[in-house]
């Protein structure tokens, strides 16, 4: 990812020169063994239970004391069943979508935090799909609570969950066009009027970034 410029809004007559800055931002990359704390056990158990481990897992990130498994979307349901049944991650705490427009080919991510009540462990699954082909298999059969979460992620980001019983909009009105939480969707506010002046909404204002 890279960040361009030092000010929030663009095209506002900024002559400082800071608008041309391009700062690259590094996200934490894949980690090497040993992972630390219970993450090694989880990885070992998963490898033992799931022979196609190397195909399915695209990367393992240990960052800030948390384990993230980047999973291939074709193998997602299989890995989910194994995590639930063999590794005892009984509860899935929802789906969170993130839109990274800079990562061409992997723009939309769906993040599933998992919780194991028996072992008191937390891990995270992350699936990345491209913008034009935003299909992810649905995990409603594995954890029924993901029903509304997947609907929300579809509503907000446009990720289509194949196999979902009723994938419709849940938070926006049923006939809304567009997916609001994508980065290319405007915030949609209106200018605030004062006497003789107008303050634009936060996505159009000049502000320090």
């Amino acid at each position: 990812m890279s960040e361009k410029g030092a000010f929030g809004a663009h095209g506002t007559g900024d002559t400082s020169g800071y608008g041309g800055l391009v700062k690259s931002k590094a996200t934490p990359g894949s980690s090497e063994r040993p992972y630390g704390s219970y993450f090694d056990d989880v990885a070992d158990n998963l490898e033992r239970a799931y022979p196609d481990f190397a195909d399915a897992i695209e990367g393992v990130v240990i960052d800030r004391g948390e384990l993230t498994l980047h999973i291939n979307r074709e193998k997602l349901v299989e890995v989910a069943f194994i995590l639930r049944d063999k590794l005892k991650f009984e509860m899935c705490l929802g789906v969170s979508g993130v839109h990274y427009p800079d990562q061409i080919g992997r723009e939309l991510h769906a993040v599933y935090p998992l919780l194991s009540i028996t072992n008191n462990q937390r891990i995270r699954l992350e699936v990345s799909v491209a913008d034009g082909d935003a299909h992810i298999p649905s995990l409603v059969e594995v954890w029924a609570g993901n029903n509304w979460h997947e609907r929300e992620t579809f509503d907000m980001f446009g990720i289509i969950f194949d196999g979902h019983p009723a994938l419709t909009r849940i938070l926006m009105p049923d006939d809304w066009q567009g997916h609001p939480q994508r980065k290319d969707y405007p915030l949609g506010g209106i200018d605030v009027e004062y006497k003789g002046a107008v303050i634009p909404p936060p996505d159009n204002r000049r502000s320090y970034k």
């Binding site: 979508g97 993040v111 029924a144 320090y208």
Partner: peptide
């Protein structure tokens, strides 16, 4: 993303799940 603003904030609210 390393900046002064959050890149994504998602709340897993308990009522959202419980209401299901």
């Amino acid at each position: 993303d390393g900046g002064t603003r959050p890149y994504r904030v998602h709340f897993r609210d308990p009522s959202f799940n419980n209401l299901q």
